[in-house]
Amino acid sequence: MQKIIQDFSIPAVFAGFITFLIGISVSAVLVIQAAQILGASAEQITSWFWALGLGIGLSGLILSWKFKYPVATAWSTAGLALIMATGSGYSLYEAIGAFLVCGLLTAILGFMGIFEKVLSYIPQSLTSAMLAGVLLKFGIALFTSMQTDWAFILSLLAVYIISKRLWARYCIVITVIAGLILCPMFMEFHMPIVHWSLAKPVWISPEFTWSAILGLALPLFVINMASQYLPGIAMIKSYGYQPHVKHLIGWTGLTQALLAPFGCYSVNIAAISAAVSLDDQVHPDPSKRYIAGISCGFFYIIMGLFAATLTSLLMSFPKLFIIVLAGIALFGTISHNISIAFQDVADREAALLTFLFCASGVQFFGIGSAFWGLLFGFLVSFILKFKNKT
């Protein structure tokens, strides 16, 4: 506890909050829709948020504290898309059984170290190109939104650039505060009346059927590995940390399995939102950035405990506010990964194709472009290097 107090910093807490905000704001509504498709009641939907908040929050907080680097955890948005697309074919109880099986498979794969061995064969130039490509849309979205909301975006960009020049370490903190002040001036936004109440967990007995295991559990397992763990682990490595892959995958999978009967459909390593907690704007000393991971976990726990209240409060912010905040917060990460991706001349062609493929956003079989782009880039790299050796 004394070390945490010594390493504590306001920018790290803000980075943790932004990581949390990006993680839930994009897909909190999709959690509700996915649960409704499976036939969940209002009380059961609240239980979903309770389980997700506590599972994600506790795993991220404890892993960040244990390993002393930011471990941001999150639910899988791609997984939600899968549930929404196929969920009508299963009962809620069958889906809960599938979530439990998926968590157990993830834990077993993680603790056995299989995923870690696969990662060791992938060049960092390709993983950085993948990350840069996946994140590119967030930077572009900020500028495309200028066509209709240029005044708010230019004002916030001006605040970011000036604060980056004068107080680089606090630039994101200052930008967030400025955004909160400017939001009511440029957009229709009124702070809602908050009624605090604790969420109540609801036990949903799992049912195990082969159709749900093969049609939901296994696809969810593959999608989580491809769209969450692969880029999430690569993100941590790109900032010079050596992630404890076995433990990160194993413990998050086990957490999902334990909380599945309450509606926890996934607990994964965060991919895109994690970048905010890893950047040097959190703290110039990489060994002190873990405070951002702890803070992010804390906010998820609060969300879980006050699920209905906090989710409605955060969802009240205009969508544009989240888009601009995410874009600005990810500037450093996009440039960081582009520089790593293209610094090695031998890998530049494969990295470029990986970057473009991942930036395209295409999906095949419900799996996003991050997985397919990296697979394609790896194939290109192998062919070019094989040709050079002959």
Results as ranks from 00 to 15, higher is better:
Ala151Phe: 13
Phe152Met: 15
Leu154His: 08
Ala158Pro: 06
Tyr160Pro: 12
Ser163Tyr: 07
Lys164Pro: 00
Arg165Ile: 11
Ala168Ser: 14
Ala168Leu: 13
Cys171Gln: 08
Ile174Met: 06
Thr175Ile: 01
Val176Asp: 01
Ile177Asp: 07
Ala178His: 07
Ala178Trp: 14
Gly179Phe: 12
Leu182Tyr: 06
Pro184Ser: 04
Met187Val: 04
Phe189Val: 12
Phe189Ala: 08
Phe189Asn: 08
His190Asp: 11
Met191Cys: 14
Pro192Leu: 04
Pro192Glu: 01
Val194Asn: 01
Trp196Cys: 13
Ser197Trp: 01
Lys200Tyr: 02
Pro201Lys: 05
Val202Thr: 00
Ile204Asp: 00
Ser205Gly: 08
Pro206Val: 09
Pro206Asp: 07
Phe208Met: 05
Trp210Gly: 13
Trp210Ala: 14
Trp210Asp: 15
Ser211Asp: 10
Ala212His: 10
Ile213Glu: 11
Leu214Lys: 14
Gly215Arg: 10
Gly215Ala: 03
Leu216Arg: 06
Leu220Cys: 11
Leu220His: 13
Ile223Leu: 08
Asn224Met: 14
Gln228Val: 09
Gln228Ser: 09
Tyr229Thr: 03
Leu230Gly: 14
Gly232Phe: 09
Met235Arg: 05
Met235Cys: 04
Ile236Pro: 05
Lys237Trp: 09
Gly240Ile: 01
Pro243Gly: 09
His244Ala: 15
His244Pro: 12
Gly250Ser: 05
Gly250Ala: 03
Thr252Trp: 02
Gly253Ile: 02
Leu254Phe: 00
Thr255Met: 01
Ala257Asn: 03
Leu258Trp: 00
Leu258Pro: 12
Pro261Leu: 03
Pro261Thr: 00
Phe262Thr: 01
Cys264Val: 05
Cys264Asp: 07
Tyr265Asp: 11
Tyr265Trp: 00
Ser266Asn: 10
Ser266Arg: 02
Val267Tyr: 06
Val267Arg: 00
Ala270Gln: 01
Ala271Cys: 04
Ala271His: 08
Ile272Ser: 06
Ala274Arg: 12
Gln281Met: 12
His283Ser: 14
Pro284His: 08
Asp285Met: 04
Pro286Ser: 08
